[in-house]
């Protein structure tokens, strides 16, 4: 692997934990990454087909209630994540236009895999009520059994599939 200038993962882990704790202290809700996307999907669906976003539909929880409901701050939080990542990348001199992939893998293969994986994650995050942040880390921090089951399943699933998608990283 190429030379890296990343910060110590344990220190960044503590930093991450403190960010989560701070969010819990302020709002009682943890951090999330998938929620903002569902809010956007719900809003778009509401414009195209208002009939399908009523009470009892999967979209409803993202649309009900007065502004700012829970998911409004998730959008701002997600904007914060992108800004934070960009700032950190600028400071570390890592900002450049590139496709991160294995040296021998084609760009098309990598982008296809990214799309396929992204669709899988987006689809299944609805079943697991959140992603590795919103379901995994938040729940794990309050010792929710379901979140721990989810986290270990994620790693299990990753190891199972790793062999079949290895080409893009080689």
């Amino acid at each position: 692997m190429e030379k890296e200038n990343y910060k110590n993962p344990y220190i960044m882990g503590v930093f991450l934990g403190l960010a989560l704790l701070f969010t819990y202290y302020i709002s009682g809700h943890g951090l999330g990454a998938s929620g903002a996307f569902y809010r956007i999907v719900a809003e778009i669906t509401n414009v195209i087909s208002p009939a399908s976003t009523g009470e009892g539909s999967v979209y409803y929880s993202y649309l009900k209630g007065p502004e700012p409901s829970k998911s409004t701050w998730l959008i701002f939080e997600s904007i914060g994540i992108m800004l934070g990542g960009f700032i950190s990348g600028l400071i570390g001199g890592r900002v450049k236009w590139e496709t991160i992939k294995g040296a021998n893998a084609s760009r098309g293969l990598r982008l296809t895999m990214a799309l396929v994986g992204g669709i899988l994650i987006g689809f299944v995050s609805k079943i697991t009520l959140g992603c590795t942040s919103g379901q995994g880390m938040n729940g794990a921090a309050v010792l929710s059994v379901g979140s721990w089951v989810f986290l270990f399943s994620v790693f299990g699933g990753g190891f199972m599939a790793a062999y079949f998608v290895r080409k893009q990283w080689k």
């Binding site: 895999m113 990214a114 799309l115 396929v116 994986g117 992204g118 669709i119 899988l120 994650i121 689809f123 299944v124 995050s125 079943i127 697991t128 992603c131 590795t132 989810f150 399943s153 994620v154 790693f155 299990g156 699933g157 990753g158 190891f159 199972m160 599939a161 790793a162 998608v165």
Partner: peptide
């Protein structure tokens, strides 16, 4: 399934 997606993407 999330794990499949994680290693794929």
């Amino acid at each position: 399934i999330f794990g499949f997606g994680m290693v794929t993407a």
